[in-house]
Simulated assay, not measured.
Amino acid sequence: MSEPRFHVLLGPDGAGKSSVMRRLAKTLPGWRLVSTDSAFVAPEHALIPRLRRDLHDQLLPGLGTAYSVDFLASVLQTAVVHLRDQVRDRDPRVPVLMDSYYYKILAKCRLAGVRDSRMYSWWRSFPQPSGVVFLDVSPRAAWHRRGDGTRLNALEFDGEDGDWADFERYQTNLRKLLLEEVRDVPVTMLREQPDADRAAEAVRAVLEVPSA
């Protein structure tokens, strides 16, 4: 039996993937969109967005004090396995576009200092997409989209201050690791788009879906 076929939308922080996914949800008839964002999670999987909220509201503020990076990886793995399950159990007749898959979580775990190579090897053994659409963005544009640094979380910058230099360094390294993780998968690079509507149209073109 062949592996399920699906596409992944990937990009650094601030690339606009969530906004693009919400727009595509209205303009990709016949496609299934998969994400850990609550807008795309079925009611029977309500635990997933709840864990995501708890991670941002409770775990990340205590990272390095109340919680270790290994604990962080353990919580993030729930999202990784959930996304894997959505690929494994899907209807093969329905095309899927997935937000980030395990690639971004793995890259962020590496940047956080998680060294569990066995966990990474397991994630990398999951079904691979037929293509990745990489929505690129410059660190400067991403910084502005994050309110000039006022809306950052601890997994979006290096160091402790979260200033521009910390953000730029982290995002540069994140982009490098993301591209490293998908080096064996067909990748279509989309240059930075001026707004989410045009980014969504660019993604539609890659997926060869006519405009509505």
Rank of each mutant, 00 (worst) to 15 (best):
Y120P: 00
L10I: 12
L155T: 15
V69R: 14
D85E: 14
M1C: 10
R175D: 07
V203G: 11
D184S: 12
P139D: 08
Q128V: 08
D166S: 13
M189W: 11
L24R: 12
E3V: 08
K17N: 13
H82Y: 15
A141R: 13
D85P: 00
L135G: 03
M189R: 14
P129D: 02
F134V: 00
A73I: 01
K26R: 15
V187R: 10
R191Q: 13
N173C: 05
R169D: 11
G64L: 10
V209Q: 08
D85N: 15
L10A: 11
T150L: 09
A196N: 01
A79E: 13
V182I: 14
Y103W: 08
L59I: 15
R183Y: 01
L24I: 08
L51K: 03
T65V: 15
E180D: 15
T78S: 12
D161W: 07
M1N: 06
V182H: 09
V203L: 08
R22E: 09
L33A: 10
V81N: 00
A25I: 06
C109I: 04
G30S: 11
E180L: 06
D99Q: 11
V132W: 08
A154V: 05
Q58I: 14
V41A: 06
K104D: 02
E201F: 02
N173G: 03
R115N: 12
L51N: 05
L179G: 06
V114F: 03
R191T: 13
F71E: 14
K17L: 11
A25E: 10
V81L: 12
S68Q: 12
Y170G: 03
S125Y: 06
H82T: 05
V114G: 03
F71K: 04
V87P: 01
F71I: 03
L106R: 13
D148F: 08
V34Y: 06
A200H: 00
K17Y: 03
P4L: 02
R124N: 10
H82P: 04
K17F: 09
F126Q: 03
H82V: 04
D37Q: 00
D148N: 15
V203F: 07
T188K: 14
R52H: 06
A154W: 00
A15V: 03
R115M: 09
D184R: 09
L28E: 12
G113F: 09
S74V: 11
R204V: 10
K17V: 04
L10N: 04
V182Y: 12
L24Q: 08
R50C: 08
V132P: 13
R5G: 01
Y170N: 05
L174V: 01
D184A: 04
P186A: 07
W123T: 05
